[in-house]
Design a protein around this nucleic acid. Sequence first.
DNA 1: GTGCTCTACTTGTCCTATCGAGTAGACAAG
DNA 2: CTTGTCTACTCGATAGGACAAGTAGAGCAC
Lengths: 255, 255
Amino acid sequence: MATFQERPAYVQIADDIRRQITDGALSAGDKLPSEQELMADYGVSRIVVRMAVEVLQNEGLVLKQQGRGTFVREQRPVRQRIMGDLYGKRPTSSPMKRAAEAQGRRSEWEYQSRRTTATKAIAERLNIAASDPVMRTNYRFFAGEEAVMLSTSYEPLALTEGTPIEQPEGGAVTGVVPRFDSIGLNITHVTEDVNARAPRPYEAEALDIAPGVPIMAIIRTYFVADRPVETCDIVVASDRYTLTYNVPIPPAEAD
Amino acid sequence: MATFQERPAYVQIADDIRRQITDGALSAGDKLPSEQELMADYGVSRIVVRMAVEVLQNEGLVLKQQGRGTFVREQRPVRQRIMGDLYGKRPTSSPMKRAAEAQGRRSEWEYQSRRTTATKAIAERLNIAASDPVMRTNYRFFAGEEAVMLSTSYEPLALTEGTPIEQPEGGAVTGVVPRFDSIGLNITHVTEDVNARAPRPYEAEALDIAPGVPIMAIIRTYFVADRPVETCDIVVASDRYTLTYNVPIPPAEAD
DNA sequence: GTGCTCTACTTGTCCTATCGAGTAGACAAG
DNA sequence: CTTGTCTACTCGATAGGACAAGTAGAGCAC
């Protein structure tokens, strides 16, 4: 019997509009027909066209604006965040500052540091005991007016307490590597665990993230040999940032 | 007058359920109340509870299943894809194979190679002329039964034509680095540009991606000094993979 | 010209309703 | 005990309607 299962109308309409976007019949900035027009064009009720357009918005292809209409989104992750691209040079400032300066932008950020104790998850990442004291710093990075990156860093106070770098910001030296260099802890490598997910509501608000745009969540940890000295949760909007990693391939060993 | 703008009912209901999930009142695998129950609980119509639950599904927090109910999703990116963690050893097989073997899984993949010409975008990445001949290979990688990664690689035929590695797969040597080693091109480094976005419909189907789960799109390019020799588009589901990068920090230069 | 209001158009929110389709458990038939 | 069927419950798709709220342009008052 195998009744041919017809695909839902809203899916077919979404497919049709998506094809127009990928084919270029509709390009970035163009206005889609209004809901009334789409209802007439496809001969369906309003809920169907709303579901179709919502599919496209969740795919990040269009942006609905109340009172104005629905518009094809621009696809443009303009900024780059570069890791492992130091060309053999040890950094003398923070990665954020370097990336901004490389693109001729002023870098600006807000921060708030606070003494606290490690949660279980943070303790595990720093290889310390849960409830050991840490310095937690919340950052908001800006490019011009808009916030582009959120970050929360954790440093074990066992390492920094009483040193000039106990406070991550406001001292003479900026950047994790130079700061730890200044107290004789020479960072050897950094790991980044990258994942993507939909933004939490407060992240969407803080970073002004459009519907349908996921965020990239980075867990970064600095090491001195095998000992973690700083770990950090970073959140960036995927429509504004591309993460770039440059990984050297070591030469073959001589046997 | 400043009429206090009450937030929409469906947003408030979504907030309430989200809070129950983050607080642990509802944990992974738990079933949410049915739409009928939620209608009664909150005193709203069905469309409102459906909109509320849809918000949560788009955030990746719950999964709706027709005929069964709505369930809190598990948050568990189990697999890791590790780059730059070679501990000084030049790889002798593909990264995919190494990651699978490190976790005790068999690695399996399908592929299809085809001679074609470079598109403008690919030509730019390989630093060749548009419409120069390239070998394109589509991959689907599996872990057990499920597909976990899609990949499309491009190699300039100007480099490989007539050599034993003209076909990326099926030869004696596997993995990009060993293959190019075998024809005397010693890869020096690899760059990866990472971005996140909602899956395209065919990607969602091929990788069996649940609603609300974004993908990570990686552009990987292998270089011999400054010359690109292979470039590749990789797509992985963000609920199954974490990308891990290990970046060495070079020692300070002696002045 | 400047500023205001009015209006038409757009999407947002929410309602009642109906039928379809997938699931799972109860239960009867074998 | 196994198998098939029936049924209650679940979410999916769609119709048609109402009013709210944001936008932009026309046109009027100054």
